[in-house]
Design a protein around this nucleic acid. Structure first.
Lengths: 340, 340
DNA sequence: CTGAAAGCGCTTACAG
DNA sequence: CTGAAAGCGCTTACAG
C-alpha cells in the first residue's frame, strides 16, 4: 500500500530535495562542489528520510569501500590484540574501517577468509606471517588488492612487511639463556608447519646453540598448539625426560604461562629448578609470578606502522615498502642461573 | 591494449562457456537447476579465467550477504574471545561469515560501527548488552536488520537476548563472600554509565548487602575501566581507606587480576589479609595464584546459542526469542574466611 | 533447462 | 554548480 516502511534511496532524497540524484551523490562525496543552499536542502531531506547509502551500489559504482580486512590466527588470546587495536586506531584516523576475522591457525580457513574479504570489497588486507600457498598471492595480485604482511620481517617476502626478525630475536634470547649457564635446553614450540614465525624462532635457537659449540640435535623440542593447557602438558613431557632441561624456552608467552602454571602445580620451583622463557611480552608476562623473561615485541608500533604502509600502498599505489621493527630481550624473574 | 590483466566478470565467463550470463549465475546460485553438461563448461571457464563474483553487484541484486557483524567492546582482553569464537564456528557451519569490530567501550564508536556494518550489508548483528540509544534500535528496525543482544539477559530488552542475569549472578557471589564472614566489602566496578552489565552487577551486590541487613551506602566503590592496571590502582585506593575492606569484589576477572597483582607487589596476602573476587571465569582466573573466586559464565554455550537464534531470526524471519543461560559461582583460593 | 532483458542503487564523465 | 544518462556486475522473474 504505502511505502512508508521502505528503506529510502538516493532517488527519494533527490525528489524530496528537488534536485537530481547526481547532486545528492555529490553532496555525499564531494560536498565542496555543491552550493551551500543546495546542500542544506539535500541534507535536510537526508535527515528527514533517514537515508543511508546502499553500500553494495556504492561499491559497484565507485569501486572502493574504505574497508580493510585483517585475518589473524586467533582471537582467543591477546597475542594479536594489542597490535590489531593500534592498527584499527590508525586506520580509523585515516577514514578506513577495519573488519577482522580469525583463521584458527588453519591455512584452509585463512584462504577462505581472504577470499571472502576480497570478494566483500576490502580495499586492502593485513595478513600475519608470510607462509601461505603461492596461489593466494597470485589471487591477491589479480584482484588488485593491496596486502601487507605483519609479525614477520623478511627481505624476500612476497608482499610488503611490517614486522620483526623472529629468528634473530630468538637467537638473542637464547644467547642470554646460555649466559645464565644453561646448556641443556628444552623447547616448547608452536607448530612449525605453515607458521614461519614458529619456524624462524626455532631456527634462532638452533643457531645460537651452534655458535656456542653445542649440538642442536640434542635439543628436546615439543611442537604443540598455542594454548595454555598445551604448554602445561609439554612442560610435563620435558620434565619427564631422563635428563630434564634446566631451561625451557617457549615459542610464545601463552605456552610459557602454561609451563609456569604446571610447574607451580608440581611444586617445581621457577627459576630455582628450571628456567622458563616466552616470546611476545604480552600483558600476561608481567602478571604471572615469577614474571616471564621474554622477547618484547613493539606491538602497538607494529600495528600503527602497518596501517600507514597499507594505506599508502592502496591510496598512492606506491611501491612495496617494508619496515623492520626492533625487538628487545626482557630479562625477568623466570630466568635464573643454572644450579651447579 | 590487451585486457589480460582485467578482473574477469560474469559476462566473460558466459562468453567463454558459450552460454548466457543468467546460466552462469544459476550455476553459482542454484546449481541443481542447471544441466550437468552445462555446469561442466561453466565451471571450466570459471576455473580458467579465475573468476570471483563481484560482491557489491551480488549484494545489490540479491539483497543478502550471508555476513553477520559483531561489535564487541574490546578485543584487548579475552573476555569476549571465547564466546565470539564459538559464535563464529556455529555461523560458519551455517554458511555465514562473521566480521568483528570493536568499540573500545565507546557508545559513539559503537554506533558508527553498527552503521558501517549495516551499510556494508550485514544480514544480522550481534551486540553486547542492551544499553544504547533508542535511536539505534529504531535504525536497525528501519534497515530491517536482525540483531541480537548477548552477555545480558533481560526480559524487557528491545531485542532478543542470549545471555545471563548479571544482577542475580553477582548477588549470589556476594552471598558467598558474606558467608565467609566479610561485611566490609570494597568494589572495583567497570564504568556503569552505558554499561548495563556493570550496573546490574553493582545492583546485585547492593541487594545482597541489604537482604543481610547491611547498608549498601557504606560500600566503598571505585569505578574504572576494564584494564589490569586500573584494577591495580583501584586496589591501592581501597586499601588506603581508613578502614580497608576485608574483601574486594571486582566487576570482572581482568580487574581482579590487577588487584591481585598489586597485592602481591605490596606484600599483602590474598586471601589472608584481603579476599578478592572476579567475574567471567576467563582462563586467566585459573592461572593466577591464588586462583580467582569468580562467576563462571558459559561463554562458548552463549556464543553458539546466539548464532542459532540469530540465524533463525533472519532466515525464518521468526519471532524474537530469548535464552537465559545459567552462571555458576566458582569458589577458589582468592576468597578466604575473614580474620577475626 | 536456458536466454533476453529489466532492475538493483549508486557514481561520474560529459555537457551546459 | 547542476542535470541527463550511461554504466558498475550481478540476479531473477518471465517466456519459451
Amino acid at each position: 500500500m504505502s511505502n512508508i516502511r521502505e528503506v529510502p534511496k538516493l532517488e527519494d532524497v533527490a525528489k524530496a530535495a528537488g534536485v537530481s540524484t547526481a547532486t545528492v551523490s555529490r553532496c555525499l562525496n564531494t560536498p565542496d562542489r555543491v552550493l551551500e543552499g543546495t546542500k542544506l536542502k539535500v541534507f535536510d531531506a537526508i535527515e528527514v528520510l533517514g537515508y543511508t547509502p546502499n553500500f553494495g551500489a556504492r561499491v559497484m559504482a565507485a569501486k572502493r569501500t574504505l574497508t580493510i580486512g585483517a585475518i589473524i590466527p586467533t582471537m582467543e588470546n591477546a597475542i594479536f590484540a594489542r597490535g590489531l587495536q593500534a592498527f584499527q586506531e590508525e586506520l580509523h584516523d585515516r577514514g578506513y574501517t577495519l573488519l577482522v576475522s580469525s583463521s584458527a591457525y588453519r591455512p584452509d580457513i585463512e584462504e577462505e577468509q581472504i577470499r571472502k574479504l576480497v570478494t566483500r570489497g576490502a580495499d586492502g588486507l593485513l595478513l600475519i606471517g608470510e607462509d601461505r600457498d603461492n596461489s593466494i598471492y597470485q589471487y591477491l595480485k589479480r584482484q588488485e588488492v593491496s596486502a601487507l604482511i605483519a609479525w614477520t620481517y623478511s627481505a624476500d617476502a612476497p608482499l610488503s612487511c611490517v614486522g620483526f626478525d623472529n629468528r634473530k630475536s630468538m637467537q638473542l634470547l637464547t644467547e642470554n639463556v646460555m649466559a645464565f649457564g644453561h646448556n641443556r635446553i628444552g623447547v616448547i614450540s608452536g607448530f612449525t608447519k605453515g607458521n614461519d614465525r614458529a619456524r624462524s624462532r626455532m631456527q634462532g635457537i638452533r643457531e645460537a646453540l651452534m655458535s656456542n659449540g653445542l649440538d642442536p640435535g640434542e635439543l628436546a623440542v615439543i611442537e604443540t598448539s598455542y594454548e595454555i593447557e598445551c604448554g602445561a602438558k609439554a612442560f610435563d613431557q620435558l620434565m619427564a625426560l631422563e635428563r630434564p632441561p634446566t631451561a625451557i624456552m617457549c615459542g610464545n608467552d601463552v605456552l610459557a604461562v602454561g609451563a609456569l602454571k604446571r610447574a607451580r602445580e608440581r611444586n617445581i620451583n621457577v627459576p630455582g629448578d628450571v628456567s622458563i622463557t616466552g616470546f611476545d611480552d604480552i600483558e600476561l608476562a608481567r602478571i604471572v609470578d615469577p614474571a616471564l623473561t621474554t622477547v618484547h615485541v613493539p606491538h602497538r608500533e607494529m600495528g600503527r606502522q602497518a596501517a600507514c604502509v597499507l594505506v599508502d600502498l592502496l591510496e598512492k599505489n606506491g611501491e612495496p615498502r617494508s619496515i623492520e621493527l626492533q625487538t628487545l630481550v626482557q630479562i625477568r624473574g623466570s630466568l635464573g642461573r643454572r644450579k651447579i
